[in-house]
Simulated scan of single mutants.
Amino acid sequence: MNSVPPRPAPVGRGKKVSVAVHAATLAELVERGYAALTVDGVAQRAGVHKTTVYRRWKDKESLVVDALSDQSAMDVPIPDTGSVETDLRELARSLVRMMTGPTGGALLAAMFSGGADVPGIAQARRQIFDDRFRRAEPVVVRAVERGQLPADTDPPQLLKALAAPVYFRLLVTGEPIDEGTADHAAEITLAAARAGVLGEGRS
């Protein structure tokens, strides 16, 4: 006698559906990669009918872009401790937490499993990083105002320098990243900024 698998419990309407579908999309990206991800698979994991997904997102590209962008916006705590040393360390640690969590795993899966060249995914990737840098710029501006960094320090340059060691390990060497990675990135970035090599016009 063939057994019929139980249907997932309904997840409700509105925001609950979006949350469930976004979470399912990230999980499917991590497990299957962008190329193998399907709307049917996302719907089944989320516990909704696929027509519910298609009413909100026209295709898997728009679904992935929305899930990545929405989750990334929630993964950007901006520290304000009064000390540039502590702020940069906490900022780097938050990046490590993001990139080792569901959003980071899904982003890497989208980038390296068939989604990197998809225009919508490429644009979402740029938007995620641009948004993260924009949100973090006040950390640098406040440090300059407090006299903790040179007056000509360029916020985007400093933030890119802070993130570079983390992404080098993730994307090039494959080494693990942890709080030690974050703390070292903050230390060398602060030294470079105080030495004046992250000033405006030196990109």
Rank of each mutant, 00 (worst) to 15 (best):
Val53Ile: 12
Phe112Asn: 11
Gly14Phe: 10
Lys50Ser: 09
Glu28Met: 12
Gly33His: 07
Asp178Cys: 10
Ala67Gln: 06
Gly82Glu: 08
Ala124Ser: 12
Gly101Tyr: 01
Gly174Cys: 07
Val65Gly: 02
Val30His: 01
Ile78Glu: 00
Ala67Gly: 04
Ala36Gln: 14
Arg56Phe: 08
Trp57Gly: 00
Ala124Leu: 05
Ala67Ser: 10
Leu91Ser: 06
Thr52Met: 05
Thr181Lys: 01
His184Cys: 01
Arg97Ile: 10
Gly114Tyr: 08
Leu95Ser: 13
Ser203Pro: 00
Lys16Glu: 13
Leu190Phe: 02
Gly33Trp: 07
Val39Asn: 01
Arg126Thr: 13
Phe112Glu: 06
Leu159Ser: 04
Ser72Pro: 02
Gly199Phe: 10
Glu90His: 11
Leu37His: 03
Ile188Met: 11
Glu28Arg: 11
Glu137Cys: 09
Met1Ser: 12
Ser69Gln: 14
Glu145Tyr: 02
Ala9Asp: 13
Ala136Lys: 01
Ile177Tyr: 02
Leu162Phe: 05
Arg32Ile: 03
Val19Gly: 00
Val118Arg: 14
Ala161Leu: 08
Pro165Met: 01
Gln148Asp: 12
Pro77Asp: 03
Ala143Ser: 06
Pro77Gln: 05
Arg134Gly: 07
Val30Asp: 06
Gly82Ala: 08
Val48Ala: 01
Gly104Ser: 08
Leu68Ser: 01
Ile128Glu: 00
Leu108Gln: 12
Arg13Lys: 14
Ala67Asn: 06
Gln123Tyr: 11
Thr103Ala: 04
Arg45Ser: 08
Ala193Val: 06
Arg45Trp: 07
Leu29His: 02
Ser113Gln: 05
Val30Met: 07
Ser72Glu: 11
Val76Asn: 07
Ala164Val: 09
Leu29Ser: 01
Gly47Arg: 08
Glu175Phe: 14
Gly114Phe: 10
Glu28Tyr: 02
Ala186Pro: 02
Ala46Met: 03
Leu29Arg: 00
Gln127Met: 14
Arg89Glu: 11
Glu137Met: 14
Arg132Trp: 09
Trp57Tyr: 15
Arg55Ile: 05
Glu61Lys: 12
Gln157Lys: 15
Glu175Leu: 15
Arg45Leu: 15
Tyr167Gln: 07
Arg142Phe: 04
Tyr167Asp: 03
Thr103Cys: 04
Thr51Trp: 07
His184Thr: 13
Met98Tyr: 05
Glu137Tyr: 05
Ile177Glu: 01
Met74Cys: 09
Gly101Thr: 02
Leu107Asp: 06
